[in-house]
Amino acid sequence: MFSARLREAMAAHGPVCVGIDPHDHLLEEWGLPRTAAGVREFGLRTVTELAGSVAAVKPQSAFFERFGSAGVAALEETLAACREQGLLTILDVKRGDIGSTMAGYAQAHLTPGSPLSADAITVSPYLGVGALGAAFDLAAANDRGLFVLALTSNPEGADVQHARTGGKVEGFGDSVAGSVAAAVAARNAELTGGEGLGPFGLVVGATIGSAAADLGFDPSDCGGPILTPGVGAQGAGRAELLEVFGPAALSRNQVVVAVSRAVLGAGPEGLAEAARTLNAALRM
């Protein structure tokens, strides 16, 4: 199961998942052009330098897509390189749609053999968690994972995610985010019978402080892995991770720490060392 492979990789290397985010300023710092060729080189260098040093990488699709078909081709090559190196991929695409459209996105990213396939993808539940059914089903069938946006690190997300639904879900409170977590937990329970972690997780920011507790739920009760941005450049560290998730979730390798600038800023020759240093600082 995806979650078992992810936890095994985290046990070996630590919780850090490095984003492959070829921002323009990073392309310049790496001496690369602001072109599809530049992002291709950025992606491939990152994979080469980090393979065997981190649990997973998280390519941000938008930075590749902005260059059109050539950029998408660069993303395909980056994903292929990860597969060749045995490096787990969480493709950050935040897909979320209904019916056959969601099924199309799922087929693109969760079908073995697809050039844009990944081990897991990020998805948005804000057309309703039920609308993600095709992604849940295909991920389960193909041993892939999903990370569903719940409590994100951007401050404006609270307007929707903290909103009250008017109906409580046992153990998850009555917020929109809590209802998302409850739906993910139910999907995992269908696969695991409540034993161990399932393949479906949440995106919960390391910068949210007491928000989850204030809303009446524990993100780790989703029954799957948790992808947490916000560490490093956004200001969160070990103390913030402990506040949001507690020591138990961290020690059982349930929390995947998504980091980009704090590692990528070290340059291609310094990536592996920066990742190892951060992993050492965050290990329980």
Rank of each mutant, 00 (worst) to 15 (best):
G193R: 14
M1W: 05
S260I: 11
P112Q: 12
G113F: 05
H23A: 13
V257Y: 00
G166P: 00
N279A: 09
A4C: 03
V257P: 07
S114M: 08
N154V: 10
G178T: 11
L197M: 05
E8T: 13
L282I: 05
G43K: 05
V169D: 11
I20W: 03
R276N: 01
S124W: 04
G178M: 06
L202N: 00
G68R: 15
T165V: 07
R144M: 04
A4M: 11
A108M: 08
V256L: 14
K168G: 10
N154Q: 08
A266T: 02
L32R: 07
D174P: 03
A80K: 04
A249E: 01
A81M: 13
G71S: 10
S175H: 04
S175Y: 02
K58T: 12
P15A: 07
S175A: 12
I226W: 01
P225R: 03
G86I: 12
G38I: 05
V180D: 00
L146H: 03
H162A: 15
I98Q: 10
V263S: 08
R164Q: 11
R144C: 12
T46M: 08
W30C: 10
A249V: 14
R7A: 15
D92N: 15
A275V: 15
H13A: 10
A108Y: 09
A140D: 02
